[in-house]
Write a protein that binds this DNA or RNA. Structure first.
Lengths: 352, 352
DNA sequence: AAAATTGTCGGGTACGTACCCGTAAAGATA
DNA sequence: TATCTTTACGGGTACGTACCCGACAATTTT
């Protein structure tokens, strides 16, 4: 059992073109030093044979390493969400290290746009061949990506998107539709005259992500002409006291609230409140497969969690750069993640 | 930017052991021709350096190919479920072809255990280094795996499991828990006194898979002490006339049935019936991300589909063999797939 | 004691690609 | 015409591993 020679290599191309391997190599990497005539001849043969370079041999022979930069929020005390993408990134790194790819991590503070700028500046000075970033701050991200574009450094957005043309690709959820799914689940068993509240627990209420999610959520109500006003609760202070106070007030003012939708991973704060105040009659839906959330899911105070595979986002984000830079493959410009539904019953088998 | 030499290769091992590269190579592949003393010395150095063979170079230098056999049901007129695993298998093949791995496909007829035996026989004669199979027929599969074990051919089960010790691994759903999830979803908005029916549409009602799913389903009712008897409907003839007749009868006899759980991918047959008889008041849940099912999901006659990522099962099944045979890595003996919940709203982003 | 066999090992080439270096011919400049 | 530069290409080695072949010594057989 020996490898069949179905694949042609540079050697065969060189033979057919009556040139040396080196000349073929020059054409493939379009380096200079080849006459237009021979170049065309070789390119024709390459097309004819549908030549696919042997990546094994290529990476083996190449002494170059490829350095990628990753720019993401640091894991904070407030939420350990960013652990998951980081795991995916690390997994990808381990997988492609042997192909000569290195990854350097840069972290910024989600409460401080300046830290984003600082780290972005370091990346621009660092001579990286590719960048993966979460554009949490839209304006800052836009400036940075403009700079990358000028330096011809490919970059991938993930977790959330920025309307932009120059990025290599976006990997993340379709946020509008995600909110839409949330509304479906929340209203699935809702009875008439029961009311619904959207809860946003965050210092930045006007974050682009939250807006998209809420639009999707409200659209579902419109599309299905569900009656009743959807209440909106903004909790800017994320400490448990503020949360308790605001939720208490809302529930007192609106006795018919029987379902709540939290637009981010802070849903566990609401669950804690519901548990303490003994309100097991309220359906609760929120985001992300975090330990704290799973705990409340198991206790029954969260009905569903929606999740967009953050670990896989990190993994695929790195891989999108690897595929373009090393394999020279084209990648899809937009790669939407599934909108996963997690319940107490299936959470044990969920892959983040 | 040059590759750092953080990795040690055979050359370094040879240097430290005062032997040639060839001798080190003999130890690594434990071929004969090395004295016990040198063998030990080399093995010690390998451990000390934590030597990781360079797979690129290894596969490049090796002229051997590895042949894998895949044994799965053929795509039938009754269901195109098996297209998905096949896609995953093909994707895996494309990915590892360059490492010298070939895959040969063997198909059997789900209605004919003998066809399984026939194809299994062909595989045993074919000198394959690994086998991936769906053990749809338990007894036949057990016999075949016994034979593989004797020939020291590693094999992986997927889609459904057979209690067994010798298989390399199992990749597929936790069927019991999957039924449990189905019950949760089906009862989530069920009101008092409304009744539930489990529908099995299959020639083999006593299939091990279905039994596990139903056990999980019923366990949920027990665990939550839900009242009311769960009806059971067995439809052995899968044509639409038989389905219509039996369902009509059941619904006439039991007017309170408001929810139905189909234990396999034939759920679209029930959906068609509900549509034709205008029964949009009945919740319906079933299995698998098939075109026909999605159609009914979108129309609203199926509430939820449960799915176990069949394509990924195929992909991972092949990869489990690749990882053991080529990379020499250990693989987890059991790899449970997530129990995915698909609705009209999130189906567009589902990855099968 | 000579010959044959066996056990141990090293030399060397190949896998397909990358890239350095060298060279011959053509063209430019004096 | 002599010298220099540029263009266009080939030779050859290296990457890390696999494995063939042959050398040499130790051991057994005749």
């Amino acid at each position: 059992m020996t490898k069949e020679n179905t694949f042609f290599g540079v050697k065969e191309i060189a033979r057919r073109a009556n040139v040396s391997i080196a000349t073929v190599d020059r054409v493939i990497h379009n380096r200079s030093g080849v006459s237009e005539k021979t170049k065309k001849k070789i390119n024709d043969i390459i097309k004819e044979l549908d030549y696919q370079p042997n990546i094994l041999a290529s990476r083996l022979a190449s002494k170059k390493i490829i350095s990628l930069a990753v720019l993401i929020p640091k894991v904070s005390a407030e939420t350990d969400f960013w652990e998951a993408p980081l795991n995916g990134i690390t997994r990808a790194e381990a997988e492609i290290k042997k192909y000569g790819v290195q990854i350097e991590l840069f972290f910024f503070d989600l409460n401080d746009p300046n830290s984003f700028n600082e780290q972005a500046g370091l990346i621009l000075e660092g001579h990286f061949q590719g960048v993966l970033l979460s554009p949490s701050f839209i304006e800052e991200a836009r400036k940075f990506s403009e700079a990358c574009h000028k330096l011809k450094i490919p970059f991938t957005f993930f977790d959330s998107d920025v309307p932009e043309q120059h990025n290599l690709c976006y990997i993340g959820p379709h946020l509008f539709q995600s909110g839409y799914v949330g509304a479906k689940l929340l209203t699935y068993r809702l009875k008439e005259k029961q009311q619904v509240a959207v809860v946003n627990i965050s210092k930045e209420t006007d974050n682009y992500n939250y807006i998209q999610i809420e639009e999707g959520f409200r659209s579902y109500f419109k599309d299905h002409s569900l009656p009743g006003e959807i209440l909106r609760v903004n909790i800017k202070d994320t400490d448990s006291l503020s949360v308790t106070r605001q939720l208490t007030k809302i529930l007192n003012d609106n006795e018919n609230i029987k379902a709540m939708f939290v637009t981010n991973s802070r849903v566990s704060a609401v669950a804690t409140f519901l548990e303490k105040s003994g309100r097991s009659d309220i359906s609760l839906i929120g985001y992300d497969f975090l330990k704290e959330n799973i705990k409340h899911l198991e206790k029954g105070f969260i009905d569903f969690l929606i999740c967009h595979k953050p670990e896989e986002q990190g993994y695929r984000g790195v891989m999108s750069l690897y595929e373009t830079l090393v394999l020279g493959a084209r990648v899809e410009k937009v790669h939407f993640m599934p909108i996963d539904i997690i319940t107490k019953e299936n959470q044990a088998f969920y892959k983040n």
